[in-house]
C-alpha cells in the first residue's frame, strides 16, 4: 500500500499536474519534499513509494536525495537549525555566533539535542547576508528564516522549539 499516496492524494495530484504528463519524473523533487515532511528524512519506504508513483528505480531517486542538501538521508532532530557561516555572514560575526550558540545549547555542530528535537548545522549562504547572524529552521514541513539574531534570541527560540511536543 502506498502510504504517501494515501496520505497526500490532493498534494500529489497538484504536484503531478505541474509537469507534462510524459515528464512525470519532474515531480521527484516536490514528492521528496512531501515525503520528508513528517519523518524529517527520506525513508527507504518513501523511496519505494515515490518510485511506484513516478515509475523510477529507487537507486535513481536515492541519487537525487544524495545530491541535494535539504533532503536528509538519516534521521536527525525534528528541527534542523541551520546557521549560515558563509563569507558575508562570517564578516558579521557568524562563526562566533555559531560557536557560542553551540556552547549554550551544549552540542556540537552536526549534533542533536538529547531530546531528539534540534540538530544544529552549519550551512552556506541563505540569501540573508544583510541580516547576519541568521539561520533557518527546517522541520515539520516548513523552512523559516530567523534573521538579525543574537545568541540569546537564538537560545530562546531553540528552547521554544524543544518545547513543541505535539506535531505542528
Amino acid at each position: 500500500m502506498n502510504q504517501l499516496l494515501q496520505k497526500y492524494p490532493q498534494e500529489i495530484q497538484t504536484i503531478l499536474a505541474k509537469y507534462p504528463a510524459d515528464r512525470k519524473r519532474s515531480a521527484v523533487m516536490p514528492l521528496l519534499h512531501l515525503a520528508q515532511q513528517e519523518p524529517g528524512y527520506i525513508t527507504k519506504q518513501a523511496l519505494q513509494e515515490i518510485g511506484e508513483i513516478l515509475e523510477m528505480p529507487i537507486t535513481d531517486i536515492d541519487s537525487i536525495v544524495g545530491f541535494y542538501t535539504l533532503y536528509h538521508e538519516q534521521p536527525g532532530g525534528r528541527y534542523h537549525v541551520q546557521v549560515c557561516t558563509d563569507l558575508p555572514c562570517a564578516l558579521r560575526g557568524a562563526d562566533e555566533f555559531l560557536k557560542q550558540l553551540c556552547e549554550n545549547i551544549g552540542i556540537k555542530v552536526g549534533e542533536t539535542t538529547p531530546d531528539g528535537m534540534v540538530t544544529i548545522e552549519e550551512v552556506k549562504c541563505l540569501a540573508g547576508c544583510h541580516h547576519a547572524p541568521m539561520f533557518q529552521v527546517q522541520g515539520d514541513g516548513d523552512i523559516s528564516y530567523h534573521e538579525d539574531q543574537t545568541v540569546e534570541s537564538a537560545v530562546e527560540l531553540i528552547a521554544k522549539l524543544r518545547d513543541r511536543k505535539e506535531a505542528a
Binding site: K18, S26, M29, P30, H33, F67, L70
Partner: peptide
C-alpha cells in the same frame, strides 16, 4: 505558472543544471 523548489544546491542557479533539476535529475 508553476513553482518548483530546489533542495539546496548552488549549482542549480547555473541554467542548464537548473533545467536538469526541474526535470527531476541531479543538478
Amino acid at each position: 505558472l508553476h513553482t518548483h523548489l530546489g533542495a539546496g544546491a548552488y549549482i542549480c542557479g547555473e541554467e542548464t543544471a537548473l533545467l536538469e533539476s526541474i526535470e527531476g535529475n541531479r543538478g
